[in-house]
Design a protein around this nucleic acid. Structure first.
Lengths: 149, 149
DNA sequence: CCTTGAGCTCAAGTGCACTTGAGGTCGCAG
DNA sequence: CTGCGACCTCAAGTGCACTTGAGCTCAAGG
């Protein structure tokens, strides 16, 4: 019977390791949902715990909250998501993870050759132009969340 | 004779692929330096090209501008840095790169086991607590620059 | 000399992911 | 029923890495 107990924001915060302010923020952003007590306080179903966990892991993988919201939107609305649902979502990260790992490995392996040799000053350097667009006037950098890095 | 030509900010921008505004910003932050013409315009030595290249690669590796400034501060002030100087700096990234790669790999390899099995909701999950601090109320996330991601 | 594109400064704005603070309310133990 | 810790809202602030805009000056070709 503990399975249908609702969680307060404080409890969810403790169990998930995510600050209450962040949980409210996630809710504003449509990433999680709550019911309210008569007095207006938030109450979360236990599946929210997994939802929050998913959000944090997805952030580590490099997704923005925007992307995570989109991913979560593909979950069933009517029923509590199953392990298969979560598994499917998580597996969609693989190409992204593989690409990131490949990038970092090429960076690591290229350091000695590339930096030492002087190509670091050339537009054609693979380290400098991993996206293959030499000198393109792109916008600012994107970020990869790296919690507890 | 091209080797001692000074670069304007526009030329440096084109050659490095970094916007003029960013170059001015880097200068404000002490990451690069310029001399000025009589009229007050910036002129950069050719070694600044390499310096800027270093900054961009360092960002991809995950360093903040603060950290990059510190790294650059260890370069000789009096002479133009040699390839050995740059190589030494770049090699200091290795442990960091290795750690990041290891993290992403554990994330990738843990996905199927972890997300499918339900531990995603537990504080002891390795994916959720890579820093080994379950439920610690850490500050906000850190970022890993991921240009052209 | 004149024009014009490139450059200058300084203040403010952007995007992301939150946190902080002020001022007030809820809900449960005693 | 009272106290007080947990919760509420809303606005503003934070940190990083820049970008944008206004208003003005410089430098090089014709």
């Amino acid at each position: 019977m503990t399975s249908d107990a609702k969680l307060t924001i404080g409890t969810l915060s403790q169990r998930s390791g995510v600050a209450p302010s962040a949980l409210r923020f996630y809710e504003d952003e449509g990433l999680i949902h709550s019911t309210r007590t008569a007095g207006g306080q938030r109450r979360y179903g236990r599946d929210t715990l997994r939802r929050v966990a998913f959000i944090r892991v997805a952030q580590r993988v490099g997704l923005t909250l925007e992307e995570i919201r989109e991913a979560l939107a593909s979950l069933p609305e009517r029923r509590t998501p199953t392990e298969k649902d979560w598994g499917r979502l998580a597996r969609s990260w693989r190409p992204r993870l593989d690409a990131q790992i490949a990038l970092l490995e090429s960076l690591r392996d290229g350091l000695d050759q590339c930096i030492g040799c002087g190509c670091l000053s050339l537009k054609s350097c693979a380290l400098l132009n991993p996206g293959d667009r030499a000198g393109a006037q792109g916008p600012g950098p994107r970020y990869l969340p790296l919690r507890n890095g």
